[in-house]
Design a protein around this nucleic acid. Structure first.
Length: 118
DNA sequence: CATATGACGTCCT
DNA sequence: GAGGACGCCATAT
């Protein structure tokens, strides 16, 4: 089984998400050179095994929620992984993208913002 | 080739 | 904010 170039790009982008940060599917799509194809990103991640070195758990949907999968309870595992990295969830089970969202360009500035805020 | 489906996103009520 | 319509496109049947 050979991996397509599209999958490689997505893997590379996902792997560049910093620890304790999350990115949306659309964001991954754009950064991988396939804007508007968020759905395809989800499809690619579907084939990634949960024990993979790829930080697939840092990818969530645009609403800051963990997308529901076919497998029951899989979302809980993803949430657990993120919490171990310091990502906080609100009472409704959502992540504040404004705080934990990954900004590839001005990640440092955004980090300063959160430091000042805390 | 026509349809259905899905780890999504945006826009409109 | 919730819910629905539509868009997008690779895969499966």
């Amino acid at each position: 089984m050979s991996l397509g170039e599209r999958d490689q790009r997505v893997y590379a982008t996902v792997c560049s998400i910093p620890l304790g940060r999350v990115a949306t599917y659309g964001q991954i799509a754009t950064l991988s050179g396939m804007r508007g194809m968020a759905r395809q990103v989800g499809y690619v991640l579907f084939d990634v095994p949960s024990n993979s070195t790829i930080p697939w758990h840092r990818v969530i949907n645009a609403r800051g929620e963990i997308s529901q999968r076919s497998e029951f309870g899989a979302e809980l595992g993803q949430r657990h992984r993120l919490e171990l990295e310091g990502v906080q969830f609100d009472e409704r089970g959502r992540v504040c993208l404004n705080t934990f969202g990954w900004n590839p360009d001005g990640d440092c500035e955004e980090k300063k913002q959160t430091d000042l805020w805390e």
